[in-house]
Simulated assay, not measured.
Amino acid sequence: MSFFKRDGARREPVRRSVEDVDLDSLLALVAESRGYTCAFARDGATVTLTGDMTLVVRLRGLRREAGRRAREDWPVLVSEHLAHAVATAGEQVDVCDLEQAGPLLRTRVEPVDELADLTRVVGRHLSADLVELLTVGSRPIRPEEAGCWPVPTAHALDLAVANVRRDERLFVEGIELSGTPVSRLTARTPSAATHLRWLGDYLQVPADGVLAVLPDPYTLLVHPVDGIGVVRAIERLRVHALCTDGLSQQVYWWHESRLTLIKADIVVQRGQTRLVVAPPPEFAQVLARLAV
């Protein structure tokens, strides 16, 4: 079959992959089950849903995400994508448009165990048990939204980090935990952990780094790793983290731009409380050197 423009010039047919055709069929099926009729753009980049409202849904990011997943995951993926598009139709910002969304991107740290599915969010590990999420407003970015952007997600995360740094400067104060001095850094937004990257702008950071706890998304507590007194500081910070029951109950080592978990347990035996520390190998070497 030949396709022609109105001026008579020949128009080449758009070649669609089997995967794109199958995804379109699934999109149409799900949309119809929700009471919408579908009209796909010729290039497959968008679909217009018409029902109780008219809504243009971008598909480029969805197609990328579908390409990374098994076909049996597609029905849930498509259903969630359309449901999310309808639910956010009233938002003034088109998150799929990086030019609009870019200035609003931020980060938020969450425990890995509290995320139902890491494949449904965009982020990177801050440590083995913490993930730094990419957000817009108060909600996490979905992979299908980030997939619409002309830049890798790592670049978008760096943009969000830069936005966090530009937003505010943390408030710093010295406090004591059962006689052990620590520094408390407080943010107005739930991105305090992101500021670890610029800790040297707030405090004198020794070559061996600092201990850190994250009692809540707005707060950091840190203690310098500059002497054998760091062992007592681990105990004090661990007890404090346990009492707050917030973002994380663990103690971490921030060193060379990396956050590493220091496994430390409070053990009660025969009425006595003691700290059992199983430090990572690199930190164990630091402790051995400080003990000399």
Rank of each mutant, 00 (worst) to 15 (best):
G102Q: 05
A146R: 01
P111Y: 03
T189A: 14
D167C: 08
E114G: 14
A101F: 03
E144K: 10
S127K: 09
L104S: 11
W149N: 05
I175F: 07
P150S: 08
L170K: 02
R124Y: 05
H195Q: 05
V172H: 00
S191P: 02
T194M: 11
D158H: 10
N163P: 03
P111V: 12
E144R: 06
D113R: 14
W198P: 03
V182Y: 00
V122L: 15
T107C: 05
G137S: 12
E173N: 14
L104H: 08
E110W: 11
D129H: 11
D167W: 13
E176F: 13
A192T: 03
H125K: 15
V95C: 09
A116H: 10
L126E: 03
E168G: 11
V161Y: 01
S178Y: 14
R165T: 12
R124A: 04
R165N: 14
T153F: 09
R166W: 13
R188V: 13
V136C: 14
P143G: 13
W198K: 08
R169G: 15
D167H: 13
V182K: 00
P181H: 13
S138V: 07
V131D: 00
E114R: 13
S183A: 14
A193N: 02
L105V: 07
E176N: 10
A146E: 02
Q92F: 09
F171T: 07
P150E: 10
T189W: 04
R120G: 04
R165L: 13
L196F: 03
T186E: 10
L185M: 05
P103N: 06
L115A: 06
Q100E: 08
A192Q: 01
G147N: 02
R108F: 15
T186W: 04
T135V: 14
H195A: 08
V136K: 03
P152I: 15
R142Q: 12
V112H: 02
P152C: 14
E110V: 15
L115V: 15
V164H: 02
L134N: 02
R165W: 07
R188F: 07
E144F: 12
P103V: 09
N163T: 04
A192R: 00
D97W: 03
D113S: 14
G137C: 08
L104C: 10
T194K: 05
T180M: 10
C96V: 11
C96Y: 00
D129L: 05
D129T: 06
A162D: 13
L130T: 04
G147E: 00
E168Y: 04
G147I: 01
D97H: 05
G147W: 00
R188W: 05
G147F: 00
T186S: 08
D97E: 10
F171E: 09
L134I: 11
T107L: 07
V95W: 01
T180P: 04
V151P: 04
T194N: 07
I175R: 07
G137M: 09
T119L: 13
A187K: 00
A156Q: 02
G147M: 02
R165Y: 12
V172R: 02
A154Q: 07
D167L: 08
R169T: 14
I141H: 02
H155R: 06
A156R: 01
V161L: 15
L196I: 09
